[in-house]
Computed example of a mutant assay.
Amino acid sequence: MSEDKFLGNLYQRFPVTVEKGLGAHVWDTEGKEYIDCMGGYGVALVGHQNKRVTDALKSQLEKIITVHSSLYNKTREEFLENLFKVAPKNLSQVHLNNSGAEAIEAAMKFARKFTGKPEMVAMNGSYHGKSLGALSITFNPKYRKSFKPLVEKVSFSPFGDIEKLRETVTDQTAFVILEPIQGESGIHVAPDGFLQDVRKLCDEKGILLIFDEIQAGLGRTGKMWA
């Protein structure tokens, strides 16, 4: 494949050249049909060639392709109004990002800036991305080992064990971050009551709580949020 000549070798490649897609299906250049179980890590969540999406994209591209956040834009305003119709009710503001890892990096920075505290707590088995900050709160050693030293003052606690978490946090903990349903380490659903207990613990200690729903959110579990 000529791509191999130019593209960095970061992924295992398969001898399939995908040409087009429709809904949850894609076809290669030989006309063979596949079910797209990857969906671009969620980019194609509503399917390929979704008419509402393609019509909206075409309409916007014919107007303007980007507007910096230092300026106002009616399309972005409409998007935000619709986003907050499905967002958790206690959220009042949003920060828009280009990727999951970028969202995690922003959340880490916001939490440390807001609290003025340096320590961070994530869960055993966690996956939050592969940028340097996100990787620092990702548990799997195989992703971490080649990039040490990572961001300091990160601790990990067993997923689902509120007593261990209580022992792990300190008066210098800025935030606790977790996935309600862990994805990368296997589909591990938080035990009944655990998320509520974490919320209560963080409130008691003045610690921010970050839920990472990059893999589990936006309807993937049958509900809008996990």
Rank of each mutant, 00 (worst) to 15 (best):
M1G: 12
M1C: 11
M1L: 07
S2T: 10
E3G: 01
E3N: 05
K5P: 00
F6R: 06
L7G: 01
G8M: 02
N9Y: 13
Y11W: 15
Q12E: 10
R13G: 00
V18Q: 06
H25T: 13
H25Q: 13
V26F: 08
V26N: 02
E33L: 14
E33R: 13
Y34D: 02
I35N: 07
I35H: 10
I35M: 02
D36N: 04
G39S: 10
G39N: 06
L45I: 13
L45A: 15
L45V: 13
V46N: 03
N50H: 09
N50L: 08
R52C: 05
D55V: 11
D55K: 04
L57R: 03
K58V: 10
K58D: 11
I64V: 15
I64N: 09
V67K: 12
H68D: 08
S69W: 05
S70P: 00
N73D: 15
K74V: 01
R76A: 07
E77C: 13
E78H: 06
E81Y: 01
F84Y: 06
V86G: 05
P88C: 07
P88H: 03
N90T: 09
N90W: 12
V94N: 06
H95P: 01
H95K: 00
L96W: 04
N97T: 09
N98F: 02
A101L: 02
E102N: 08
E102L: 05
A107M: 11
A107D: 14
F110K: 02
K113C: 01
K113D: 09
F114I: 14
K117H: 01
V121K: 00
A122L: 08
N124F: 15
S126T: 14
Y127L: 08
H128R: 08
H128I: 15
G129R: 09
K130E: 14
S131K: 14
S131Y: 06
G133Q: 07
A134I: 02
S136K: 03
T138F: 05
F139A: 12
P141K: 14
P141F: 00
P141D: 15
K142I: 11
K142A: 12
R144G: 03
R144W: 12
K145Q: 15
K145F: 10
K145E: 14
K145T: 15
S146E: 15
F147I: 00
L150Q: 11
V151I: 13
E152A: 09
K153N: 15
V154M: 04
S155N: 09
S157L: 10
G160N: 06
D161M: 00
L165Y: 12
R166H: 12
T170V: 05
D171C: 08
F175T: 02
I177N: 03
I177L: 06
P180T: 04
S185H: 01
S185D: 08
G186W: 09
I187Y: 14
H188R: 12
H188T: 11
H188M: 01
H188A: 09
V189S: 04
V189A: 08
V189F: 04
Q196M: 04
D197V: 01
V198D: 00
V198C: 07
K200G: 03
C202P: 10
G206H: 02
I207E: 13
I207A: 14
L208P: 01
I210R: 03
F211D: 05
F211C: 06
E213S: 09
I214E: 01
I214Y: 02
I214G: 07
I214H: 04
L218R: 15
R220F: 13
R220V: 15
T221P: 00
G222S: 04
K223N: 07
A226S: 09
